[in-house]
Amino acid sequence: MQRIARLKESPSQTAGPYVHIGMLPNFAGIDGVFDEDLGARMIVGEAKGERITIRGRVFDGVGAALKDVLLEVWQADAQGLFPSQEGADPAFTGWGRQAADMDTGEFAFETVKPGPVPFRDGRLMAPHVSLWIVARGINLGLQTRIYFADEDEANASDPILSRIEHRDRIPTLLAEPKGDGTYRFDIRLQGENETIFFDF
């Protein structure tokens, strides 16, 4: 039989405790190499839509907040368009990168609430932000989604949420509104209320 010549993906390795040096050098105190840390600002002008802040912490299996974790988000703009789709908001980058505070473990993304984006079959997915988490002790970056607890109707018909068999786990994907445009999204790596992670 003929062989299918395909390469294997490079195996993942942990980002380690010093991930900030390469990915947020100014945050790490390495000044003067890059002018600004990438992903620090997602809003780069008069962005359309509702300004929100997503705050949270990442907890390990013994309930301690990770203080060395780094997170990235990728999302559509307020109209549901990704950055250079026709008509997308030029004042919004769609991509953010933040480290948790080294003392408290708290992270924050200042962004806009995304609009709905179509699923493969054209049905709309509820507004959501894709979230990627890397840290020491995490061997392969964890993928999850931030949905919004105040989007009941859209969440109820979301094609991804709909396929989750254990309905009681869905709240782990919902950011809770706290007023003033702030949402709380804590991630639990293990234990009761372990956050749902995705493989796609």
Binding site: D60, G61, V117, I196, F198, D199
Partner: peptide
Amino acid sequence: TRSPTRAPISFPTTLG
């Protein structure tokens, strides 16, 4: 203590 214990949930890729 940093490894999820549940299997990740699969879905087909979308635009995002």
